[in-house]
Computed example of a mutant assay.
Amino acid sequence: MRLFLVALQFLTRLPVRLERFEPGWLNDCVRHFPLVGALVGTVGAVVLVGAAQLWPAWVAALLALTATVALTGGFHEDGLADTFDALGGVVSREKALVIMKDSRIGSYGALALGLSLLLRAALVAVLAARPLWGAVAALLASHTFARAAAVGVMVSLPYGGDVEHAKAKPLALAVAPRNFSIALGWCGLLGLALVVAGVHLPRLLVATCVAAVVALLMRQWLKRRLGGYTGDGLGATEQLAEIAVLLAFTASF
Score class of each variant (00 low, 15 high):
residue 1 M to T: 12
residue 3 L to P: 04
residue 8 L to N: 09
residue 11 L to N: 01
residue 12 T to W: 07
residue 12 T to F: 08
residue 14 L to W: 06
residue 15 P to L: 02
residue 16 V to A: 00
residue 19 E to G: 09
residue 23 P to A: 09
residue 32 H to D: 14
residue 33 F to T: 10
residue 33 F to H: 12
residue 35 L to V: 14
residue 37 G to V: 07
residue 38 A to E: 10
residue 49 V to Y: 02
residue 53 Q to L: 15
residue 62 L to R: 02
residue 63 L to F: 08
residue 63 L to N: 06
residue 64 A to T: 08
residue 67 A to I: 00
residue 72 T to Y: 06
residue 74 G to C: 12
residue 75 F to C: 02
residue 75 F to E: 01
residue 76 H to M: 06
residue 78 D to R: 04
residue 81 A to Y: 02
residue 84 F to T: 01
residue 89 G to L: 08
residue 91 V to H: 02
residue 92 S to F: 00
residue 92 S to T: 09
residue 98 V to E: 15
residue 99 I to A: 03
residue 102 D to N: 05
residue 107 S to E: 13
residue 113 L to K: 03
residue 115 L to I: 14
residue 117 L to R: 03
residue 118 L to C: 12
residue 120 R to D: 04
residue 124 V to T: 06
residue 126 V to R: 03
residue 126 V to I: 10
residue 128 A to I: 08
residue 133 W to D: 12
residue 134 G to S: 09
residue 136 V to R: 06
residue 146 A to I: 07
residue 146 A to H: 07
residue 150 A to K: 00
residue 159 Y to W: 11
residue 169 K to R: 14
residue 170 P to A: 01
residue 172 A to Y: 06
residue 172 A to Q: 02
residue 172 A to T: 00
residue 173 L to R: 06
residue 174 A to H: 06
residue 177 P to T: 11
residue 177 P to S: 12
residue 178 R to E: 14
residue 178 R to N: 00
residue 180 F to N: 04
residue 181 S to P: 00
residue 185 G to L: 15
residue 187 C to I: 11
residue 188 G to R: 07
residue 190 L to D: 05
residue 194 L to G: 08
residue 196 V to I: 15
residue 198 G to W: 10
residue 198 G to N: 11
residue 199 V to N: 03
residue 202 P to K: 10
residue 204 L to W: 10
residue 207 A to L: 06
residue 208 T to K: 00
residue 208 T to M: 11
residue 217 L to W: 13
residue 220 Q to V: 00
residue 220 Q to W: 08
residue 222 L to Q: 14
residue 223 K to T: 11
residue 224 R to M: 12
residue 226 L to D: 14
residue 231 G to R: 07
residue 231 G to E: 13
residue 233 G to N: 00
residue 235 G to D: 06
residue 237 T to I: 07
residue 240 L to Q: 14
residue 241 A to L: 06
residue 247 L to A: 13
residue 247 L to K: 08
residue 248 A to L: 09
